[in-house]
Structures are given as C-alpha cells and as structure tokens.
Design a protein around this nucleic acid. Structure first.
Lengths: 219, 219
DNA sequence: GTCTATATTGCGATAGAC
DNA sequence: GTCTATCGCAATATAGAC
C-alpha cells in the first residue's frame, strides 16, 4: 500500500492511526502535533504553519500527506473518536451488570485520558462549535455514546438498581456531561484547587459516586 | 456621552448593554447578530463580513463602532458574562438556605437562557478553546461561579443537609458541568429525543433532583 | 453615520528544484 | 520524501466620498 493518505482518506476514513503511521515518522509527527492544537484551539484558529512548526516538519508536507489542513483535521477527529467508539463497544460486549458497565466506562475514560487526553476535548469542541465535519463525523459518535449510556440506565431500571421515575434520555445526557474528563483537566481548575494531585481521577471518583447515589432505588 | 464605544471599551469595560444601545440601533443590531455567531462558531471562525451581513449593516461599521472584530468579541463576551455575574450576586444576597440558593441558581439559568441563550455557550467555548481574552475576561467569571457553588455546598454541609464526606471543590465542578444549559439545547439532542417539548427545562429539573439526592445526608 | 473602493497582510495550496 | 518560492485568495482595516 503506497497510496498517499490524502487519497486513501477520500475513499475510506476507517483507517486506524497505527496502520498508517507505523513506518511513517513524518506522518506520525504531524498527527501527534495536530491533536493538541486542534483540541485546544479549534480548527479555524490553527494555521498550517503552526501545525508544521509544532510537528517540526516543512509546511508543504501537510498538504502533501493530507491534502490540506481541513483533511488533516477530519482525519484527527475521526481517529480520536474511533478510540471512544471502540472503548464503548468493548464494554458493551462484557457480561457484567449495567451499573458495572457505567463504572467501567468512567474508569476507561480516565485511563484513556492519560494516553489520549484530547479525545473528549475534540468532541466537546465540535459540540459547542460545530465545523462542517460535525454531521458526518461527530453526530454518530454522540449517538453511539448516548445510546450506550441510555441502555445501561434502562437495564439498571429493569434490574431494580435504579429508580424507575427518571427519564433515561435525560439521565444519559447528564451522565455524558458529568463524565467529561477534559473539562476537569483545564488549567483553570488546577489553579482553583492547587492542592489536588490528580483532579481528573478524584473528580471522576466522586462524580460517579454522587450520580449513582442520586439515581439509585432506595429501600 | 458621545464617545465611540471602541474608546469607551479601552477605558472601562463595565458598561451594560442597555446603557450603550438604547438610542443606537446600529450598534444594537451588530451586537445582537454577533452573540449567536460568536457563540456557535467561535471567534476565529467568524468573519467581519459574516457579522455585518447578519446584522444587516455595512462591513465598515464594525471597525467604526468597535475598532475591529476582536474588540467586538471582547465586548460581547464581557457583556454576556456580566449577566451571569449579576445573577449570582443577586442570589448570594438572598436570605435563603444554601440548598434553596442552588435550586434558585438552576432556575435562573433556565429563565436567563430563554432570553439570552448564548451566555454559557460563550463561556464553555472559551473554556474548551480559550482565546487571548480568556485570562482577562473569563477566568474571573469562572472563579466567581465556582466560589458561589462551593460556598453553597459547604453551607449545606454545615447545616447537615449535605453529606460531610464530599469534597466541595470537586462537587462545585460537577455541579457547574451538570447545570450547563446550552449543551442541552443543541440540535443534536433535539434529534435524539424528538418527543420532548422543552428539553432544557425537563433536563434541568431532573438533573438538579438527581444531584441533590446524590449529595443529601441520609437519615 | 453610512457607504464604496482600496491598501495590506497573511493564509493555504502548489509547482518545481533537489 | 523534503524543501523553497510563489501564486491566488480571503479577510481586515481604512481612506475618503456622500
């Protein structure tokens, strides 16, 4: 396979990062540099020169490999969202209780966040300021996450673990919001609570605890 | 007072929207058009032409009145955040219980959101993708909201209404996230739950209920 | 106050040398 | 595969007429 990625991108987006980058150090450097830039500033606020400088490569190589800034963004977005998708699918297959699945999801978000700290920031950036890629790349990921959470909540209601009087659609939405890690990791909060060692982990642990208590069926 | 706003901006940012715009229809049109554009696309993704077209005014008038796109953005941001600030201050002064204050805050967010649906979207856009105005205009608003929520939580813990074993800093953070209205109002969720009449109101009502149950001291 | 026309800059993409 | 030079374009701000 010696097609350019830009060509490949046009035909099939479902190519994992590893496949492409194993033996392509330049492509890899560009992607690694692009993820935090796009996640922290958004597509429009990042220039090609900025991407190239951050990656330590020549500015022309962005177009050479990806066919332009927008295509690179689309690739990064799809690539990162697929990690989220895979995590959800993996949990769905497990033969554990619905509540366990939710706890497991929170754990995985936290662990994934250590290695890929920008997945949910890219996601929420798109939710608050959608680009032309929102409908094609983000909507499906949002639905996927929503249905997973909603399914867990309804299962837990059937089991009698959760209260029957909560709306699973709305509850899935509040859960999605409360579980967002990247928000928690902002410098802003590091300043607000300088004593905390690992805000994300401490936050997640307490947040899921409060939530599960709030929706639990009382004896 | 017949100074240009751009001049005024440089000297004193604490000018309310009403004061300036009462007798200035053009200025008012520009601001009204700019709020949703900046909130939904972000500073970098909005062009001056786009702003002028949306306002129905000549493109040169943006610079004439505000001294450029960035200054207009700064004005809009400060203007909208001040509404949030005033709401918090008003509740703080009330002689009601901490839990009532939290419920009241949720209500006010909801009501405010009907008239000014873009306040928290501007806020969260800045949190996820900070611009050069973040430190100066947004940080203080975030601290203000955080300390308000944290204070309510600690008061409720002292009163014995909330559990003593939760961390008020982390709890304030989860509450700030869960109370965000603009996220809830995204088209995405309207599609996911088409049967809901007023997602924001229904969401808020359930979310605050779950949260307060989760942190309540149990008998 | 509002408009047209223009100056200027910076960006993104590409051609072509190496 | 990488680099330099450059083309074309879009965007912002401004000068000056009305």
């Amino acid at each position: 396979m010696n097609l350019k990625i830009s060509r490949v991108m046009g035909k099939d987006v479902n190519i994992t990062r590893k496949e492409i980058c194993a033996d392509k150090p330049t492509v890899n450097k560009i992607i690694e540099a692009a993820i935090p830039l796009f996640a922290t500033k958004g597509l429009a606020a990042v220039s090609v020169k900025e991407l190239a400088d951050a990656a330590g490569v020549n500015i022309a190589l962005i177009s050479y490999y990806f066919g332009g800034k927008d295509n690179l963004y689309a690739f990064v977005l799809e690539n990162q969202l697929s990690i989220l998708r895979e995590a959800i699918d993996a949990i769905s297959k497990e033969e554990i209780s619905a509540v366990k699945k939710l706890r497991c999801f929170a754990d995985i978000l936290l662990v994934t966040n250590k290695k890929n700290p920008y997945i949910d920031r890219l996601f929420f950036t798109e939710v608050f300021n959608p680009t032309k890629y929102f409908d094609h790349l983000v909507k499906s990921a949002a639905r996927h996450a929503h249905y997973f959470l909603q399914g867990c909540i309804e299962d837990a209601q059937s089991n009698g673990e959760f209260r029957a009087d909560i709306d699973s659609d709305l509850a899935a939405m509040s859960l999605l919001k409360i579980l967002n890690v990247s928000f928690t990791a902002q410098d802003l909060f590091k300043e607000l609570m300088p004593s905390k060692q690992d805000i994300a982990a401490e936050y997640m642990s307490q947040a899921i605890e409060i939530y599960l208590t709030g929706v639990a069926k009382r004896p």
